[in-house]
Design a protein around this nucleic acid. Structure first.
Length: 573
RNA sequence: GCCGAUGUAGCUCAGUGGUAGAGCAACUGCAUGGUAAGCAGUAGGUCGCCAGUUCAAUCCUGGCCAUCGGCUCCA
């Protein structure tokens, strides 16, 4: 084995899992069992799903196999021989895999009596697996296709040492504490109700403040960069959706209804509205590029089972912008948009990953336009010198796109920013501008959202900060904690002073002990706690405690105000 | 949508074929307390929804809804 290769170790552990399953459930058929970033899985075809008890038994059997110190033996078989073997065992999925393999000789790996089609490499012996654990169980389509049969997937992980495994499991627990759904509840930010509908987010006052601050921020940044705000309706007659192509390509995700014999649909995207603004008069090349911006709320009928708190909702608000430009301006506009997005993400201290998505199977427009658009995106990425990956076939139905993904607490990646070129909309709506020569030219349209949606972005943000938001976006920035009732008067005075400085302040006026008040403020993850007692009242100061548990002692009120104001202004992370 | 699990008080969770409990929170009172939970009392539940089995269902069966872990799809 390549020395200490985690992927090899994990893949080998997947073999041991399959071996254990085969020993305990001989009728089970095998799918595939690769290593993945966090561990490994193996897919099985089995009528009755595995139970949690089964997992325990399997885990135990795996430990026994490991104890046996079985060597991984590689065998090269002639294709015909391999086929005969797999046919004999009725391994229909493996047979399908075999068909896809090139070459005459096929490699198998055996541990004891268990034999698996596999290109390797593997560890030397089962005994090398020191630390493993089966983590979960789920259904998964064969080869990831929805139309294929569903197999039972068992997930697990393996490490070289017990300590590493324990640390991994601890990290998972830590990440769970940061789950935005949990924090959203405990910090009183938002809620989602069965009664109101799945995937529909209701913001509580603190969540609304958080969102509003970020909305104001993003709106300002757009204005600084030459975007004009527009406001468009939440629904249109289906005539518009037919013209835009959404009726044909996006219908299954849209909500329709009929009033007085007219059919309407709620908007799943903001583009048609912006296009109508553009079309409202004749545009000249001198006007371009035109950039429209809107915090546009859209509704998409996401299939049940895909919702995920704020990260995946049915109603969400995009920081949506549409740029109308000439072909000559395209590249520069894309570059500007990419750097704009990265600038915003930097403000929040995010890491990110750029992805170029190309033409999907279902698409509108000509192949030539698609190629041209994809090229423009590539060029822009190249010139900006940024690393990116390519996701073939992942583009939107109307054009290729550059996506930016950021990671949540559990390392799951979420697409937030997206920048999409569109040659098709301009054709469908006959969008044009008058050139220098007086002739009409077709303009190009760019769709782009930087935060993506307020919902998803807030979800990622909550997990990113673990609920301990930087002061500038904290729903409550300061909490005043008077020690006894006789300090209320001074507490109110300080509160008034801070409010005049536009700080978001709460006063805990309850008749409780200071330790109790601190505990609550701490759980609410409020950045600054001001403890007020006799000493503070006398000297016109506050005893400053941070949520990091640091006690900064007595500070003059003025000093505190200027310290906090500075941090807010700098948007300190 | 698919596979599996789950759904009991505001929150976190026990529990049983004979219509339910704990801790925290809430409310009331006592205590006026200096950096993560003071004490006592009170109130709070169509046991997700709808059917069925049963003398009797929160518990058993079926359907639906929602949530969680995945798959698929996506901002």
């Amino acid at each position: 084995m390549a020395k200490r290769d985690l992927a090899t170790l994990r893949h080998s552990t997947a073999h041991i899992l399959a071996q254990a399953v085969k020993e305990l459930f001989p009728k089970v058929k095998l799918g595939i069992g690769p290593s993945i970033p966090d561990g490994f899985y193996y897919d099985f075809e089995k009528k009755e799903p595995f139970t949690p008890e089964d997992l325990k038994r399997i885990e135990k059997r795996m430990a026994e196999i490991i104890e046996k110190d079985l060597p991984f033996k590689k065998r090269m078989l002639e294709r015909e021989e391999a086929q005969r073997l797999l046919k004999r065992d009725k391994e229909r999925f493996k047979l399908e895999l075999l068909k896809g393999l090139k070459g005459k000789r096929i490699s198998f790996y055996a541990t004891g009596d268990f034999n698996d089609l596999c290109k390797g490499p593997h560890i030397k012996s089962t005994k090398e697996v020191e630390a493993f654990k089966l983590t979960s169980m789920a259904g998964a389509y064969w080869r990831g296709k929805e139309t294929n049969p569903m197999l039972q997937r068992i997930y697990g992980t393996a490490f070289f040492t017990k300590e590493e495994l324990d640390e991994y499991l601890r990290n998972i627990e830590e990440a769970k504490k940061r789950d935005h759904r949990k924090l959203g509840k405990s910090l009183d930010l938002f809620s989602i109700h069965d009664e109101a509908g799945a995937g529909l987010v209701i913001y509580h006052p603190k969540g609304a403040i958080l969102r509003k601050i970020i909305e104001d921020f993003i709106e300002e940044e757009h204005e600084k960069r030459g975007y004009q705000s527009v406001i468009t309706p939440h629904m249109y007659r289906i005539d518009l959706w037919k013209r835009s192509g959404h009726y044909d390509f996006y219908r299954q995700l849209m909500y329709f209804f009929e009033i007085e014999n007219q059919e309407y649909a709620i908007k799943p995207m903001n583009c048609p509205g912006h296009v109508l603004v553009y079309k409202s008069k004749i545009r000249s090349y001198r006007d371009l590029p035109i950039r429209y911006f809107e915090l546009g709320t859209v509704y998409r009928h996401e299939r049940s089972g895909v919702m995920h708190g704020l990260m995946r909702a049915r109603g969400f608000t995009q920081d949506d912008g549409h740029i109308f430009c000439t072909p000559e301006q395209l590249k520069e506009e894309i570059e500007k948009a990419v750097f704009f997005a990265l600038d915003i993400l930097k403000t929040f201290g995010f890491g990110y990953k750029l992805i170029l998505s190309t033409r999907p199977e279902d698409y509108i427009g000509s192949k030539k336009n698609w190629e041209q658009a994809t090229e423009a995106l590539k060029e822009a990425l190249k010139e900006s010198g940024l690393d990116y990956e390519i996701a073939p076939g992942e583009g939107a139905f109307y054009g290729p796109k550059i996506d930016i993904q950021i990671a949540d607490a559990l390392g799951r990646l979420w697409q937030c920013s997206t920048i999409q070129v569109d040659f098709n909309f301009p054709e469908k709506f006959n969008l044009s501008y008058t050139g220098r020569d007086g002739k009409r030219y077709r303009c190009i349209m760019i769709h782009r959202a930087l935060l993506g949606s307020m919902e998803r972005f807030l979800g990622v943000l909550i997990e990113h900060y673990g609920g301990a938001f930087p002061v500038w976006i904290s729903p409550v920035q300061v909490k005043i904690l008077p020690i006894a009732e006789r300090h209320m008067e001074y507490a109110l005075e300080v509160k008034g002073r801070l409010e005049r400085e536009n700080l978001r302040v709460e006063l805990d006026s309850r008749n409780e002990k200071i330790g109790y008040k601190i505990r609550e403020a701490q759980l609410e993850k409020i950045p600054y706690m001001l403890v007020l007692g006799d000493k503070e009242a006398k000297s016109g100061s506050v005893a400053l405690r941070l949520r990091s548990e640091e006690d900064l002692g007595q500070v003059k009120v003025d000093e505190f105000v200027s310290k906090v104001s500075r941090e807010i202004k700098r948007k300190k992370n």
